[in-house]
Design a protein around this nucleic acid. Structure first.
Lengths: 241, 241, 241, 241
DNA sequence: CATGAATGAGTGTTCATTCAT
DNA sequence: TATGAATGAACACTCATTCAT
């Protein structure tokens, strides 16, 4: 390995080819020859970089996951409040999968159900990533944003489970076209489901105004505010089956 | 097929063997020989009942799913109210997977990500099953239990996604031991997330005021309307990174 | 295996083909395809009968060796006297190799130097075969035909080593054409080398010459030579197992 | 080849590495990489010195054999008498293999049965070495030490065959620990087997002729002693199976 | 009906060898 | 001279599938 950067580049080239091929054909159906052809190298060359077909598969997450986790943590620093952070997390995952469909395929359709992958180092990074959700939920409980009795593990399962379910549908059925439509509805459902059910400050005020506003008035403004703290909007591009 | 009942029994015997083997070893790793041995028949005999290894796999859900769906629908008749029905559904799925781990393995780890399975007749039954959730949610919206703006497809994704996420964790990690602990927390989270915002303590007070404030007005309707008149459509292209 | 005799026949057919191919091309150069073609079956069929290329190789001696050993023991019953028996043994080996050149090739050029073969059950039969020589030599010592100081293990090494050396030369160089020419010379050399030195007819004549030779004081030299030509010193580190 | 001596040193270094590796793993199992690693050079470098893996193998005997042959011939000049020379030869081979086990492995287990090696120049040196035996036997016949009817080729086969048989046993089984124990027994067996059948010393003596024949001579006693002092104890702990 | 026996088709993997640098 | 990098060419082995009995 005289030239490490060249070596890394080649490795990346092979990994990208593998990601594409595995995403397209599935792992058992894809052959090393397919990957080699896609990468523009020989079969044997692949074995210079990866010791087996399976190791090649397990190497795909590697950097991607690490960078993703770092990026997410970086963004979260910009955001205040557990609820807002949950939205960032949901956005992050959906945006990422949307923009890396091949990676999504490999992760959701191949790796997720692979028992051996669980013993992989790469999987540890995935776990760490998913621990962020736990942390944020706990933070929200501590700050009083969320109820004391909320189970962070359940929340994580709800968030990741829903995302994964939608990503898989998107991959297999192609619907919805745009995964990001779900960011707000999902965020809202979850937040609503776990937040401290005391009315947010300001509610009472507005409500007390209503009598004045209602009759013939424009409720829009008032509820607009309410809506902002309480949005359950259904996108016109709903998740049709 | 000299003796139809005997034939069916044999078929079931092979299917059960396949379920066990596929669950244990995964589909590509499992061989027809494995299944044949487990079923106590010869390799060739399997081909008397199923035309290919893949057809054998796709035949596993068949009855199970149909019966499951029927049972679920039967139970739902006992239950009044969309929220209660959602709980029944969640209970049903978790209970079923908990008590049929091999089937859970095949369904969650093998079939769910199989593109070809989507074109299968058996898959149609699965879809029908999942449509029950849509129906119940719509029922809840119509009855006023759930908010008007709730997206039934999202709710379905949340419920099925969470369940599947938990089942997969259970299959791969063995935790939690008892899936059913999640029934109520999950139900509550979802219901809370979608139900018409019944007032937290203190609300009723204000509500009681409304008639005075909005004479002749229907508070419920009003707020429902307010919400409905406040659609916040999100442009799908508005969420740039 | 419904029909064992058919199964055995097939197995034998493959073994014979393997013997021919391995003899002709050597083990590493021979491919399973070669063997399959020679046997008139498919590659896969070979694996129905033998679990690996190596097991196929190690199965070649099997019957042959067992039958050979039995035949040899049968013949030995016809022969009286250890010396005569040794001749029978030498004849047996040379005759056998001469008439089974492919087997000779496999045994001498492939198996003999294979460390793994030593752990094989088939090899045990070979060992038992070679023990016959030990037995006969011991018998000859006990009966007084051979000297007391003869080391049976050395004799065995001489007999088998010479035979193998000649067979290998015969296989590789093609000379001599007829291995059997060596039966009597080798037998005589060995017998002469180990027998109790009873004088052959005519000896005494030559002995009468000695007096003439002695004067002049060469007797010492002569006996020195005699001594040197007859040392049976036991090294403290004998060829113990 | 800028620096010839450096070049030769490198070549020797590679050859020694190859000898070790081939001896340890066998030829087909050993890889060029193994040899390169052992030699501390790169794979490609080996091809600077040897054109192929096989040429590398065939180059191993080269010097060793030539030097061995020279040494043997040198020693033989010190020895008088064909019988004594045969002992020297036997000693030489056994001593050499004993002290060069890796070379012994390569020669006995790999090269000896290689058809292509026979066409090699290196093999010619081996042949020349083995011709020494022929020469000595012929010399012994001519001098009257050995019988007229002795076949030198047979004797060579006996000597080399026995040695090789024992060396192979030693390599594969590890017994006997010390090959050299066999030098004298083997020499004696062979000499006894081919020498002119002069009565063993002491025979005629006892026949009572001698006193008259060698008056005042000590020859009688001496040779008698020689004979009597030649007890042929057979170790009870011979070459265990 | 059931199956023992046979196989065609396919693939991951290895390694001796080459060559630009 | 030395080698890192690349690869062409093979090959053992597997397994879903077929079919005569």
């Amino acid at each position: 390995m005289v030239n490490p950067s060249r070596w890394e580049a080649r490795k990346e080239q092979i990994l990208k080819a593998a990601e594409r091929i595995f995403a397209r054909k599935g792992f058992p159906e894809a052959t090393i020859s397919d990957v080699a052809k896609e990468a523009g190298v020989s079969d044997a060359t692949i074995y210079e970089y990866f010791s087996s077909k399976e190791e090649l598969l397990f190497s795909i997450p590697g950097e991607t996951t690490r960078k993703g986790k770092e990026m997410l943590e970086f963004h979260l620093n910009y955001v205040r409040g557990a609820a807002n952070k949950l939205r960032s997390i949901i956005y992050h995952y959906l945006w990422f999968y949307q923009n890396h469909p091949d990676y999504a395929s490999v992760a959701m359709l191949i790796l997720k159900q692979n028992r051996k992958f669980l013993e992989t180092e790469a999987y540890q990074v995935v776990r760490e990533g998913s621990r962020i959700i736990l942390r944020v939920v706990e933070e929200g409980i501590a700050s009083g944003e969320f109820r004391q009795d909320v189970n962070p593990y359940l929340v994580r399962s709800v968030i990741l489970g829903t995302i994964e379910h939608m990503v898989i549908r998107w991959l297999l059925h192609g619907s919805p076209k745009d995964l990001l439509w779900a960011v707000d509805p999902l965020t809202d459902l979850v937040i609503q489901g776990i937040r401290k059910a005391s009315p947010p400050p300001g509610w009472n005020l507005r409500i007390s105004l209503e009598p004045d506003v209602c009759p013939g008035g424009d409720a829009t403004d008032a509820s607009a505010l309410a809506v902002e703290s309480n949005p359950q909007h259904r996108s016109s591009s709903g998740e049709g089956s």
